[in-house]
Design a protein around this nucleic acid. Structure first.
Lengths: 236, 236
DNA sequence: GCCCGGTTTTGGTTTGGACCAATTGTGCGA
DNA sequence: TCGCACAATTGGTCCAAACCAAAACCGGGC
């Protein structure tokens, strides 16, 4: 049962392309479609997701623009995204942002971002969030995978605000976060025990979001930040 | 002979969108469609050029990406290209950020930014701030000049945080703000009376900063935002 | 004169279909 | 076995149509 996402039966207008993008990008980030692998043909994807081929193409256009896939006429579409992305060029800001500075900015934007997301997210977007959440809950020991899923979760939240400025700003934050994990490597402290703690936190966060409980969700977001802070301080 | 492009009679495949782009961009550059002017509706263009509306939209997508036009649903597509080249290329995010969305993001980041700035600013940076402030207080009626000085004031505050991430994010905010003033033109409501009100606010803000009074400064920042909001709403 | 509600216009999204061009795969014949 | 032509597959382009939502427009009623 590879199709864990919502079938677009309720078919909210104007959300179909985003739904396809979120579905596919999640699959890529979670390596359901592995790096270098060929993903299903456009016609197949269209049928599986229950949308027109044009819609799939629109989504693939954007994924290609993000550099996640590469397309060759007559051949297929291939995943270029590399989770261990040693090669990608990070923004210069990310390079000069320290872990603490990152934490400060996250503390500013994330609690408010959740508030906005709760107000603006469509049921379909929440469903996409739940898909990522369930994948996070399946993680036992793979810290790297968990970190990637966390990023996807947060990215979906940012998208959920529907505010281009917020999304753009938060992309900078995510860049810095990726850089931070790469250099500081404090995910070594992400033991199975800690992963379990985080899973509990994200679960609570999601439930608050699904219940549209703004204060509760914002509070969970702050708790996660504090937990991150603790992790950060443990590292010489 | 204004139409120098191929008529699509021979209809080479894969050349139709380019043909439309070239035709329209030529008309825009030659000011056949003047700056700020509304160009024909997509349906009209499709009929005139003998192509499908989809094709016209594809072409308009790219012209919009180039920053030559701006589209508003229900209203039309307008030429933003300025032959006198004053229009520096704005970031794409700025273009798609609405005034209200800008205000939301400012509400998130500015009050916290002031807090950080107060803690981190050096006496020299505060001195720089006071210089800008005095220039602002000298303004009587020149709304444009006042807006530019406001931007400088805020930029100094962002710099004052010493946090590269915050600075980078706030640069996006400032881009959007500049764009907002360019399109919405709500600085027309910036009458001398209102300028005086703002001057008073900035004066209080600066004094709070100089006194390192965090709560007071953050409060002044919020007040300025509320005042902006009021200005925004007055614009029918 | 002004406001308010319905109507029209305009861009935005999605569908489904047709055809083209590049690539891959296959099977037949030399 | 090798090679070439044909067929199938895949992405690329374009078209026609339908419906939605935001904006603008317009006319009657106060």
């Amino acid at each position: 049962m590879p199709n864990s996402a919502l079938p677009p039966t309720t078919s909210l207008p104007g959300a179909t392309v985003k739904y396809v993008i979120e579905t596919l990008s999640t699959r890529i980030v979670t390596q359901e479609y592995a790096t270098e692998e060929r993903l299903p043909s456009e016609r197949q994807l269209a049928q599986e997701l229950g949308v027109a081929r044009n819609t799939v193409r629109e989504a693939l256009d954007q994924l290609e623009a993000r550099g996640m896939i590469r397309r060759r006429a007559g051949s297929g579409s291939f995943v270029t995204y590399d989770p261990d992305g040693q090669g990608e060029a990070l923004s210069p800001v990310a390079a000069e942002t320290g872990p603490l500075q990152l934490q400060v900015m996250r503390g500013i934007i994330e609690p408010e971002m959740v508030r906005l997301a709760i107000v603006n997210m469509s049921p379909r977007q929440i469903e996409a969030l739940s898909v990522v959440l369930s994948k996070m809950e399946a993680v036992q020991t793979d810290a790297a995978a968990f970190v990637r899923l966390e990023e996807e979760f947060h990215r979906l939240l940012a998208e959920g605000t529907g505010n281009p400025l917020v999304i753009a700003c938060y992309n900078l934050v995510l860049d810095a976060r990726r850089q931070s994990f790469r250099t500081a490597m404090y995910r070594r402290h992400l033991t199975p025990t800690r992963i379990a703690i985080y899973q509990q936190g994200y679960n609570g966060l999601f439930n608050a979001i699904a219940a549209r409980d703004i204060e509760e969700a914002s509070e969970f977001m702050k708790l996660a930040l504090i937990e991150d802070q603790r992790l950060l301080l443990q590292e010489g």
